[in-house]
Simulated assay, not measured.
Amino acid sequence: MNNKIILASLIALLLSSSLAQQTNPNHTLEALTAYNQWRNHNPRVFINEAEKQYRQSVFLENFQKIKEHNSNSANTYQQGFNQFSDMTQEEFVQKILMSNSQAQSSQPSSQSSSNNLGLTASTSTIATSIDWRAKGAVTPVKNQGNCGSCWAFSSTGSMESFNYIKNNVLQSFSEQQLVDCVTTSNGYYSYGCNGGSYYQAFLYASRVGMKSESAYPYTAIWGSCKVSGTSNGYKPVSFVSVGQNTLALQTALNASPVSVAIDATNLSLYTSGVYNGCNPQYINLNHAVLAVGYDAQGNWIIKNSWGASWGQQGYFLLAPNNTCGILDNPQQITA
């Protein structure tokens, strides 16, 4: 299909959308260029022409939203194009985020205490900023794909970092093992690609042990468990709830990275800056990530699981305090 045909198609889509009244030929050409560049880096296979046209229209809607967001100087973060640019927000929530808010519902009440067990400290002992990446304690960013397995990536991230801090070995552990094996049929309250709990993942790993990424590679599909026995590698010995306040999480982060849950409903198009795009009146903990530190301004440094091409090389900064519910359910390995 040549550029004239593509341009005509895009103009038709724009005219039939809510963007029509705001569109001029220059904007259309800009959208065409952006879409062609994006498609070069994000190839798609469509079942028919209708699906292709629909995905183009979604991209154009997001294109306009991104321009409007970035033109507002009051916003503290920028948006841009990535693998989610041809998804609606509803599709993103359904396909990528956890369909059930597992983080708080699948741990015993004894683990929900606001006390930070064994990790108390005065403010004088807490660093002004800390970043475990600089200490070599964080594995490279991974990609969960179209599977709601963020909880597994948050869990392995905590275990990988703690193993390095304790044993000076940086080894990548298997998310697929957790997806396949931390299931209700095995006595755990997690649901593979439909969401899960890092507490349940830690509990499983403490009993069975963790295989390496290479020994049990990731497929982004919820399959059958391929692990037997109870001697399968690294085992966390103890893990606790971190207190639900800024000081407690900062204190914990001075010891090691921490698994946290956030509301990521509006996070898909983030590219840089300090994210604060949640509705504080309605927080749904639908995404598990790994807090690897905080900066001098109190922003949380977060490792995501959407690949290194997303955000800031796979990371993002989250505004201080309880932004997006980050303080609602932090869990940390302590031994």
Rank of each mutant, 00 (worst) to 15 (best):
L119N: 09
F84H: 14
V138L: 11
E91W: 00
I126E: 07
K135W: 01
T125R: 11
N116I: 04
S99F: 00
K142V: 03
S101V: 07
S129Q: 09
T128H: 03
S113C: 10
S112M: 09
K95F: 04
T128F: 01
E91H: 00
K95T: 14
M98T: 13
N116Q: 09
S112Q: 10
S113Q: 11
F92A: 02
Q102P: 13
N143M: 02
A137R: 04
R133C: 13
W132D: 07
Q107D: 10
S114H: 04
S105R: 09
T139A: 12
Q111C: 04
S113Y: 03
A103I: 07
T125W: 01
S105Q: 10
N115H: 11
T125A: 12
S124F: 01
D131A: 08
K142P: 08
T120K: 15
P140H: 01
S99G: 15
S114T: 10
S110C: 04
N82A: 09
G145R: 10
D86S: 13
P108A: 03
A137M: 02
T125M: 05
N100P: 08
S85F: 00
A103G: 10
T120E: 15
A121K: 13
E90Y: 01
S110R: 02
V141S: 12
T125P: 12
W132Y: 06
F84T: 15
D131S: 11
G136F: 00
